[in-house]
Design a protein around this nucleic acid. Structure first.
Length: 993
RNA sequence: GCGGGUGUGGUGAAAUUGGUAGACACGCUAGACUUAGGAUCUAGUGCCGUGAGGUGUGUGGGUUCGAGUCCCUCCACCCGCACCA
């Protein structure tokens, strides 16, 4: 074999490991580059070809930066707490730590085969006690902090206590859940416990009764970002709202900063927009509506205070705390029933039920603060308890939902927009002029909003306010395989463990299931099963959510073995922000928001000196799998007719009987809609039909009316050119039905599958693994083509950010390129052979052109075009029969980030002693790129134009001179003076004649 | 409904500030060699046309000497959010 990638790759991977080639040194004198890819959850399925995509891009860029002289930090680790290992533990009893360890081992083997430049000295695992010690520690810091809106940062809780002691809480401006104000004197008289209860309402992580998303199937609560379309992201189980005592993170305190600082990071618009959406800032006002004949006050939030005179009713969320208090006796029964019904709905029902307008009048009325009008108070589940105040002032003329509601329940609609027709629907544009609205009349909407707020504040009935859709994040999970909280309870009050008691490690339990009383699995651990001493009745039984460990792992890489701190200040200052973060966009509202939040918090507390974790981010597109489906009959509808009988009253029975005789029938996908498929089936089941005749008599003739089929996944490893390999499938024990099945083949005698592009996943049987398949033992791409080919091919597939189906076919082209590259250095007998002397001009031009292109490609993260440009370069050098040592040496360095193994091999053959990673990335020389000067005419739409290739640095005058010279030399131009000459340096010159 | 994105051959895709559209690769066609292989090499390959030529970057329009690229219109697809007041 001329290019023996197997030996080469083994050799150099061993070399890198032995020499710790990619171990980053903390050397502040060097310019740093911190490249990071999102660390994986080590699942049991191992890596498929989609996983390494981002890692390869990250590796290429890290290697490029290293060649440019940067001190590169390119670490890797595992997000190793998580649900699948726990579910596996529940099924098998095997400790999740063992499963996780095994999975990591397999991941590591696979990763190593691809030749990544990861610094494994710095590996972190979120499930490692030496790591989650610091996750627990950060939790403690959050607990011991509050957010001061005046200084706009988090501060220690002691500073809040001091304010309380001196001034009470009236002057404190902080996000909190403390509704009532108190004086300093009142505070000082409170018991320790009462004080703690109040402080809990200010802490950045706090324990509170809150409405949470409860997923009964998973037996745990979930954060909003773990829910998609009203069902759990993992498993797709229904989710309901439940009031539970849970730990939460006060991420809402950071809403404004999380929003504004998006402008300081270089992320894709899509992700930024998703985060903006998620944060969901809306500016408006809150107002208080008094009750008719009651002292209660209904607080509402609106973005349209200008429509205050258009209010014709009020709506409360069914869960609103006032509902019980204000409902009149007359309506009590109906209201209770409505509240009950609303409570029964799952989140999904509620969402899919949007078009159904429901509601219930409470019998109570509110007073309009300006007109004194009586406004009926309704409850309806289109008002959400969790957003704003859980109550709205309904303005049917300006809000479609209010309009629909008013129409449905025959509530009068008042129009306050001048010259606007609202008979068909609400007018939601903000370009109208207000009318019939006292002091707001004749004002345009934007001015009316300001004026309305002014009056609302003046009258003391409310104030301007900003609301966010973002909710505080539930931080506890009723699970085993997660970080234990550093919290214990004494008399039902939570207390924190001391720093020197950390980490609290996960205790052993007999089962990984909840207890009979519905307590989380950790409740199974006896007090002495914990490795900490505590003065209380029990430890916290909840564990932290999956995103706890991943919210700060990028900091730990900087200083992974530090036992004194989560990261030292010096190292955090040096490595600083992640320069390039590569990962999937599915974390847009989860991980990426939480890690920004924690980074800002740690910045506020002075532990790090940057407040955004990731300067630039690229979201690699998903690699999709090409699933295969075969058609299987579910049921065949036969019709029977015999001699002298036109109608058969026993058809149903006969149909059932004949179907019961049939084995599974699989039909080639290309026949499904063909005319003769029924005949083919009849032919194929002649044996069964004979059995049928034995019972019902030969006089019946059988015809097929209809064939009901279903599509089933076929493992793509049993497929060859869209056809199922029947020999293979018969020995595949997952498809036992093929043993006895009737197969309706197409003209070529094949059973063709239908192909469809889907997400690559083990359950869809469409996975392509990069290395040898552990199930079948069949050679993988790396064994067939080598890691370098795989790396180049994954990049060649298309733009990194785009989702693309995997297609193995094209890999040959890339492999050929590497073989051609190899041949540049070797003679026909495969002996290393390069020429010393001066390179010729053409080859120099090819080289420098390529260096320029590749540098540009890398700088704009266009990894796919770079591979193409390598190919062009190697093709050209092959044509030029160039084997000049000087040229090839530069080319080797240039290619090394993409194909590091072959580059190392050639580099050493060229006589270099050290690894190619110590080389300098080549720079191009403009001088070699100078174009020869020539001009030729091109006919074009009746006009003529010159093409003149000129050096790019020519001035306007120089170009004009060249144009004149070219004109001179062109005979065809004789007698025709150019009408107009457009000159662009370095470009084509058009001359219109 | 709101927001974001994408539309270029049979396929993946190039075209960096507007400047010869389809580079590079897959696939396909024909041929060569051959110890018949899913190897290698040569030629061809946007579409229509034997040809000269015409035509062509989702649709329609505009700006320009010149538009895949800039502006407007519409269409299609993908992604995210969604009773958020």
């Amino acid at each position: 074999m001329e290019y023996n990638f197997r030996d080469i790759e083994d050799k150099w991977q061993a070399y890198w490991a032995k020499n710790k080639t990619f171990a980053a040194k903390d050397d502040p004198s060097l310019p740093k580059y911190y490249g990071l890819t999102m660390f994986p959850y080590p699942s049991g399925a191992g890596l498929h070809v989609g996983h390494p995509l981002g890692y390869i891009a990250s590796c290429i860029y890290a290697r490029y930066k290293k060649l440019q002289g940067y001190n590169v930090l390119h670490p890797m680790g595992y997000d190793s707490f998580g649900l699948p290992a726990e579910q596996y533990a529940i099924q098998t009893g095997q400790h999740p730590a063992i499963t996780t360890e095994q999975n990591i081992k397999r991941y590591r083997e696979q990763l190593d085969k691809i030749g990544f430049s990861f610094d494994w000295e710095r590996e972190v695992r979120t499930s490692d006690p030496s790591y989650y010690k610091w996750t627990q520690w950060i939790f403690k810091q959050l607990y011991n902090s509050w957010y001061n809106n005046k200084t706009n940062k988090a501060e220690s809780i002691e500073s809040l206590v001091k304010i309380f002691e001196k001034e009470g809480n009236a002057t404190v401006d902080a996000p909190n859940d403390q509704k009532d104000t108190f004086t300093a004197a009142a505070w000082n008289e409170l018991s320790e416990k009462a004080q703690q209860n109040i402080l809990m309402k200010y802490r950045l992580t706090y324990l509170a009764d809150s409405w949470v998303n409860w997923c009964p199937a998973l037996g745990t609560v979930l954060a909003n970002d773990e829910i998609k379309d009203g069902v759990s992201e993992r498993g797709g189980h229904p989710v309901e709202q439940k009031l539970m005592r849970q730990w939460s993170m006060r991420i809402t305190a950071y809403a404004e900063r999380l929003l504004n600082d998006l402008e300081t990071v270089d992320w894709s618009d899509a992700i930024k927009e998703q985060q903006r959406n998620w944060i969901g800032k809306s500016v408006g006002a809150e107002g208080h509506f008094k009750l008719v004949g009651g002292k209660e006050i209904i607080e509402v939030f609106t973005t349209r205070p200008d429509t205050i005179f258009g209010v014709s009713f009020m709506v409360l969320a069914p869960e609103h705390e006032l509902v019980n208090k204000i409902t009149t006796a007359e309506y009590k029964e109906e209201v209770d029933e409505y509240v009950k019904q609303a409570g029964l709905k799952t989140e999904r029902d509620r969402q899919s039920d949007v078009k159904n307008i429901t509601g219930q009048f409470t019998g109570a009325y509110a007073i309009h603060p300006f007109t004194g009008e009586k406004l009926p108070i309704w409850i309806a589940d289109y008002v959400l308890a969790g957003y704003g105040t859980g109550a709205v002032m309904a303005v049917p003329c300006g809000d479609q939902r209010d309009w629909d509601f008013a129409k449905h329940f025959n509530i009068p609609i008042k129009n306050i927009f001048k010259d606007v027709d609202i008979s068909e629907g609400a007018y939601t544009e903000k370009d109208a002029v207000i009318t019939d609205s006292d002091f707001l009349s004749d004002l345009p909407v934007n001015k009316a909003i300001k004026t309305a707020i002014f009056h609302i504040e003046k009258e003391g009935i409310g104030k301007g306010r900003t609301n966010y859709r973002l909710r505080d994040a539930v931080f506890s999970r009723q699970r085993y395989w997660g970080e234990p909280f550093p919290v214990y309870y004494k008399d039902g009050t939570p207390y924190l463990l001391e720093d020197d008691q950390l980490p609290v490690t996960l205790p052993e339990v007999d089962k990984y299931l909840p207890t009979e009383d519905g307590e989380p699995p950790l409740a199974r651990a006896k007090k002495d099963a914990w490795d900490v001493e505590f003065d209380g009745e029990r430890m916290e039984y909840n564990t932290m959510p999956g995103w706890a460990g991943s919210s700060w792992y990028f900091l730990r890489y900087m200083d992974p073995h530090n036992e004194k701190a989560f990261v030292s200040k010096e190292k955090a200052d040096y490595w600083n922000q992640v320069d390039l973060y590569i990962g999937g966009s599915e974390h847009a509202t989860g991980h990426l928001l939480y890690s920004r939040f924690w980074t800002k918090f740690l910045y506020d507390m002075g532990y790090i000196s940057f407040h955004e974790p990731f300067i630039k981010m690229i979201n690699q597109g998903m690699i999709l799998g090409n699933s295969a489906f075969y058609y299987s009959t579910v049921k065949i509808d036969f019709s029977f007719f015999g001699s002298g009988r036109s109608h058969d009253h026993n058809a149903f029975e006969r149909n059932e009987f004949l179907n019961s005789l049939l084995p599974p029938i699989f039909i080639s996908a290309d026949l499904i809609n063909s005319n003769n498929v029924h005949d083919k089936i009849l032919n194929a089941i002649s044996k069964e039909i004979r059995s049928f005749y034995e019972r019902f008599g030969e006089q019946d003739k059988v015809q097929i009316l209809d064939v009901n089929t279903q599509k089933l996944h076929m493992d793509i490893r049993n497929i060859e050119n869209d056809a199922i390999d029947l020999e293979k499938v018969k020995i595949d024990n997952r498809y036992p039905e093929f043993e006895k099945a009737i197969i309706i083949r197409n003209e070529e005698g094949k059973l063709i599958c239908e192909r469809e592009v889907e997400k690559m996943s083990k359950s869809k049987y469409n996975v392509v693994t990069p290395d040898t398949d552990p199930d079948t033992g069949k050679e993988g791409l790396i064994e067939q083509y080598g890691a370098d080919t795989l790396r180049c091919y994954e990049m060649f597939l298309g733009p990194l950010e785009q989702a693309k189906p995997w297609d193995t076919q094209g890999i040959n082209g890339v492999h050929n390129f590497l073989r051609k590259f190899w041949r540049l250095f070797h003679d026909a007998e495969n002996n290393f052979s390069v020429s010393e002397g001066e390179p010729d001009k053409k080859s120099l031009k090819t080289l420098h052109k390529t260096i320029k292109k590749i540098t540009d490609d890398l700088n704009r993260f266009s990894f796919n075009t770079a591979v193409s440009n390598f190919m062009i370069c190697v093709n050209e050098l092959t044509d030029q029969k160039c084997n000049n040592k000087g040229i090839l040496k530069e080319l080797v360095v240039l290619i090394s980030p993409y194909a590091p193994h072959i580059a190392e091999e050639l580099w050493s053959k060229l006589g270099e002693q050290k690894s190619v990673t110590t080389a300098k990335f080549p720079e191009y020389n403009e001088a070699y790129l100078k174009e020869s000067e020539f001009a030729y005419p091109v006919s074009f739409n009746g006009k003529m134009r010159f093409k003149i290739e000129l050096p790019t640095d020519f001035s306007k005058e120089e170009v004009e001179k060249e144009v004149l010279a070219a004109e001179e030399s062109q005979k065809w131009l004789e007698g025709k003076a150019p009408k107009k000459v457009i000159v662009v340096p370095g470009r084509i010159v058009n001359i219109v004649v």
